[in-house]
């Protein structure tokens, strides 16, 4: 073990790993090399997995892409008997429900982040409250769906129908809420992305050096002037990342939406009309689909994959930008 210790240290810390086994062909080094090989393979597996996912879904979608082309993305019918497939209503429903959820979940999420980081609570209580918000993220989607069906929808219905009767001319209230619909779905979605937005925003606000707030207070600002004019703009890119990643989460959310949105193939501005999303379409049609429909569903899955990949990469880029900014300032 202790022969030539000097060389060992050099070879261990050297950046070229393949030199050491050649110099010291012993059991320890064979093990070390094998170990390294396994670790390298595991890391490479992540790359392979992503590539395999794209190739597998893309490959299975190929027949449908060849058959329906881009018209698939802009057509509005989904008729298995006639072989007409289009996902425009689903794309619309996905974006619309996620956007509504983002507005609501974003406002609440950022407020919660301010609440947790700007000395509103003694630190012990803040930990308890943070845990409550984080446990919200742990509740399974399907349980939120069940809760939505039997608690949220009955609660929303009188209010929604009153809004429809009084303000029916406003397109947002253009229909009554008969059961499942966009509003309950978006509300549950907002609850589900709130923890994501809150926890990333908390990190962004925590990154700000304490002296920045001290300086603002020192100039005589009130607490909220400091928050709105100094803290939030300084944490801006981190909060943007929180919103984008929350949006990405909302786009791909499946079960709660499949249970609450009504799975109706239509495009409507009304908050109370049933709608559909890409993920919910996959969830409800896949199990009973025949071969032709599976190909079309694979095309829809590819569209969902493309949308979420782009949104997530944008969010991660914003987050990286946010962290870099502070590393440079310090």
């Amino acid at each position: 073990m202790l022969g030539e210790p000097w060389h060992r240290i050099i070879s261990i810390t050297s950046t070229d790993p393949d030199r050491s086994p050649a110099r010291h062909p012993g059991g320890d080094y064979a093990l070390d090399r094998g170990f390294r090989g396994i670790a390298w393979t595991s890391a490479a597996l992540i790359l392979a997995l992503v590539a395999y996912i794209i190739v597998e879904i893309g490959g299975k979608a190929l027949p449908a892409i060849a058959e329906y082309g881009f018209g698939f993305l802009t057509s509005t019918t989904w008729n298995v008997q006639e072989g007409h497939f289009g996902i425009l209503p689903e794309i619309w429903g996905t974006l619309y429900s996620s956007l509504l959820a983002l507005i609501l979940g974003g406002v609440f999420g950022i407020t919660i982040a301010i609440f947790l980081t700007q000395d509103f609570l003694p630190s012990r209580l803040a930990v308890v409250f943070r845990t409550i918000i984080e446990l919200l993220a742990a509740i399974p989607s399907v349980v939120f769906g069940l809760w939505g069906i039997y608690v949220l929808i009955p609660m929303l219905r009188p209010a929604a129908n009153w809004l429809h009767e009084e303000f029916g001319v406003v397109p947002f209230f253009g229909t009554s809420l008969s059961g499942p619909g966009l509003a309950p779905a978006a509300l549950v979605l907002a609850i589900m992305i709130l923890p994501t937005v809150a926890s990333i925003s908390v990190d962004a606000l925590r990154q700000i050096p304490y002296k920045v707030k001290e300086a603002a207070y020192g100039m005589g600002t009130t607490r909220w002037e400091a928050i709105l004019k100094v803290m939030l703009p300084t944490a801006g890119s981190g909060i943007l990342a929180a919103l984008v990643l929350g949006f990405g989460r909302a786009l791909g959310e499946t079960m709660a939406l499949a249970m609450l949105i009504g799975n109706s193939n239509q495009i409507s501005l009304s908050l109370f009309a049933p709608a559909n999303t890409l993920a919910a379409l996959l969830a409800s049609n896949f199990p009973e689909a025949g071969e032709v429909e599976v190909q079309a569903l694979m095309y829809a899955a590819l569209a969902l994959l493309a949308i979420t990949l782009v949104v997530n990469i944008v969010g991660l880029a914003a987050m990286k930008f946010a962290t870099r900014k502070f590393e440079a300032e310090r």
Partner: peptide, 25 residues
């Protein structure tokens, strides 16, 4: 670096697509 980035991307991967992928594979 690539693996780390892709792992982060995968945390936002819609769970239903994991189902679609394994169905196909």
């Amino acid at each position: 670096q690539t693996a780390r980035f892709l792992a982060k991307v995968l945390t936002g991967f819609p769970s239903i697509l994991a189902g679609v992928f394994v169905y196909a594979a």
